[in-house]
Design a protein around this nucleic acid. Structure first.
Lengths: 341, 341
DNA sequence: CTGAAAGCGCTTACAG
DNA sequence: CTGAAAGCGCTTACAG
């Protein structure tokens, strides 16, 4: 059914080797022969078998992405960036999802190795605490690029959001809007991201000499609307005087706003709120939500950019790992807009 | 660097053939030998080369998905379903995105064929008007499964939402809430889906003897908030008496609600609104949006289910194409809830 | 400029 | 129960 080089060679009365070379535009094939081959191949729509050529060239032109969640706005943007940019560079993308499981992540990394992918792109799961699987990849000489959720202790290529700075900017914005009693909803301790956002938050308070209250920093175990709602309730009990909230994500921020409104507070007049991620929903809530825009699309593109660099013939043997930082941007909307700046 | 069967065979002092058979648990290898091989392989973490085994078995255990959009709630849910269910069946998923381009779709189908995927899953782009590329896949004996956005004229496996019925239910719901003057925002003429939703809408009006006004059916060229907003403006100009709206998607419905509110109308009191898709945002808007839930996750899982059936050894030569319908469900929230039913 | 031949790493029919 | 050998469809060093 499927055509092979042999079929083409027979039909044209030339050798398999020549057909192969003509297809790859080798210089030692006569232009005339090249044309005959190319025309015929075009006519019969022959495509060389990808697996067979891999066996010789050892390049699959295949990359693998492992995401902790698939149904997630930000990761989807990243995925879009990866897929579109990979296509431009004639790579194809295998997509796996660890579902925040360390065991799955390890398994999936191995599956990708077995497929002989040319590169692995990974955002580590919340439950990943050992990194042998990552080191194993590097030992095999396959580049691994960690993005967004990285392992600080594993040297590797990285593409990240500058979370600390972003959190600083978000908090600073609340301060400039006149907030004096600022609370923070943060994530679990494990992902570096939530630590960084917390640090950025604290640094901003310090810098502007706003008192920091440890007990006003509540943990959202999950990135869900309901957690924001619950924490808002807790927060108002212990600190009715809060007039500003920097929440770790947009959905928790929206949950919090829902509770504040239910409780009779006006947002932003009584309490200004800013989220993080700039989800699609944020422009459509009421009030619309201020947020920190993380450019997922750009992150995805950068991942491929970093990867393709590793595939270029190396000048020096000693390759350095690089860290690429994606710029963030404040999106100020109604939920935090008290005064004109 | 990477181990091969040959390495294992040498290390163990047996033949490559025996190692291969032991790994595949063939019955003609002694249990003792099997154990030795399995233990060693476990120890050195050997994984057979996927491309090499394909060359023999002609099964890549690879499937390809082409989505018209990647950054899209519904398709993401479908993707999640496909990826998770594929994993259970030890398939891996190549993800491509046609970006609503016919040319890209054709190219990508060809790329997947070149990769020798075992199956192709496709939601056709809005601009796809010819189907030779799909027929070509079938000619090669590769199963192609169309989902959500299908080509009615191409016989193939299909997994779809019962759009017509869903639209009927949504419209019926508005009627039961007491709406008498019902408008509809529809999509372009090309995707079957928007035709079906339109037909379902009309049928419901007919069934309940509610007058149908052609001029109250406005087209949203794109599935975007702004289009709903604009159309709401147009609609109120030509038909200030409307008291119900069934909009093709959630984002256009939310856009419309924004305009209605701006215009001073109360939703649902003055005008009841129902969308379609049940996006995550819909529960969080104000008023929260009634919608038709399409279970994308289930759709993705069904795609894999249909696919794996095609991979089973066939009983009869004559395989029939199947059509799988995903059930829909109304999610009634504030935007359409006028009276208790 | 062309082609014969070896080999990538597996699987499997076949012989013993 | 074990192993030698052919072959999947390519690529490429080498000979001519």
């Amino acid at each position: 059914m499927k055509l092979t080089l042999k079929d083409i060679a027979q039909a044209l009365g030339i050798s398999v080797a020549t057909v192969s070379k003509a297809l790859k535009n080798y210089s030692d094939v006569s232009p005339a022969t090249k044309k005959i081959v190319l025309d015929y191949v075009e006519k019969v729509k022959f495509k060389p078998n990808a697996q067979a050529s891999f066996l010789r060239t050892q390049k699959t032109k295949l990359v693998g992405v492992i995401l902790p969640k698939l149904n997630h706005d930000f990761f989807n943007e990243v995925l879009e960036g990866i897929v579109s940019e990979a296509e431009k560079n004639t790579y194809q993308v295998l997509v796996l999802c660890s579902q925040e499981s360390y065991e799955k992540e390890v398994l999936q990394v191995n599956e990708l190795l077995q497929r002989n992918v040319d590169g692995i792109f990974l955002s580590i799961s919340m439950k990943t605490y050992k990194y042998d699987h990552l080191k194993q990849v590097q030992k095999q000489g396959i580049p691994i690029i960690l993005f967004d959720l990285i392992a600080k202790s594993v040297p590797s290529f990285r593409v990240i959001i500058y979370d600390q700075k972003a959190a600083f900017l978000a908090t600073e914005h609340l301060i400039k809007q006149g907030c004096k009693n600022i609370a923070h909803f943060r994530g679990n301790l494990i992902p570096q991201m939530s630590i960084d956002r917390f640090i950025g938050f604290k640094k901003a308070l310090e810098h502007y000499k706003i008192p920091f209250h440890k007990e006003w920093c509540l943990v959202c175990e999950e990135d869900r609307f309901e957690k924001g709602f619950e924490n808002a309730k807790k927060l108002l009990k212990i600190a009715p005087e809060v007039d500003g909230l920097f929440s770790m994500t947009d959905s928790t921020a929206i949950g919090a706003i829902h509770y504040f409104k239910k409780y009779g507070l006006k947002v932003p007049k009584d309490i200004a709120v800013i989220g993080f991620s700039n989800w699609k929903i944020s422009a459509l809530t009421e009030p619309s939500l201020s947020s920190v825009e993380q450019n997922g699309l750009l992150m995805g593109k950068k991942v491929i950019e970093v990867f393709t660099k590793t595939q270029e013939p190396r000048n020096e043997e000693k390759e350095e790992f690089t860290t690429t930082t994606i710029p963030v941007q404040l999106c100020i909307r109604e939920s935090s807009f008290k005064i004109k700046t």
